[in-house]
Design a protein around this nucleic acid. Structure first.
Length: 206
DNA sequence: TGAAGGATTTGT
DNA sequence: CAAATCCTTCAC
């Protein structure tokens, strides 16, 4: 299933809206728009269809043990990006949430691209390009240089609210949300902090 | 200074 | 199931 993109501009999501516990944000970000603005000024919009929450006292959270240079942004205020390199070859994009000094974030695991990203790329279904945290960063050309930056219009990345019609469909259950345990973890694997739009073509298997 | 391992993806 | 590939973290 492909979600409909809004034909009209949607309001940006504020840092204040993101200053809540990460599980709540993970649910609320489903159906919202991730906007990538490239250096030439062009933009590429994607609908968020799969997320995971990471929180304080969560063994799976990068900030679980202590503050380090890598995870420092998670200790800061909500509304900033946290991008890290995993397995030496893939980047993962997070939205920092909750209050300052409460290290938490939401991992964007899958998006539905509105159009083909710029650059030479072998023709591939858009749903595939955004299926997986590493793949969506590759498609949107997101790397660690984008970590620690605010989500705000005019920046390389920002977020926009759900369209009213999509919000209504999700609240009425016409678009089903699912909640499961998180993927690929060795610790904290029991917390049911993964959410996705069930029938989306872009979510991870399971 | 060294070593182990990871919020992934892909191909065998 | 294992490789690719490199950064982060922790131990010595």
């Amino acid at each position: 299933m492909l979600l409909p993109f809004s034909p009209s501009p949607l309001p940006p999501i504020s840092a204040a809206w993101l200053a809540r516990p990460s599980p709540a944000i993970a649910v609320d970000l489903l159906g919202c728009t991730l906007v990538r603005q490239f250096e030439d000024g062009s933009t590429l919009r994607s609908l968020i269809v799969e997320t995971e929450a990471y929180a304080p006292d969560d063994p799976a959270c990068h900030a679980y043990r202590r503050r380090t240079p890598r995870n420092a942004v998670m200790f800061g205020p909500a509304g900033y990006s946290y991008v890290y390199l995993i397995y030496g070859m893939y980047h993962c994009l997070n939205v920092v949430t909750d209050a300052e000094d409460v290290p938490s974030a939401v991992l964007i695991r899958a998006v539905q691209l509105q159009q083909e990203p710029p650059g030479d790329r072998s023709p591939q279904p858009l749903a595939r390009l955004g299926a997986g945290p590493g793949k969506l960063c590759r498609a949107l050309q997101i790397d660690r240089s984008h970590s620690g930056q605010p989500f705000a219009p005019g920046q390389p990345l920002w977020l926009e609210q759900r369209s009213p019609s999509l919000d209504q469909q999700m609240r009425q259950g016409a678009i089903a949300l699912h909640q499961t345990t998180r993927i690929g973890l060795t610790q904290g694997a029991d917390s049911p902090w993964r959410w996705y739009i069930r029938d989306s073509a872009a979510v991870s298997k399971r």
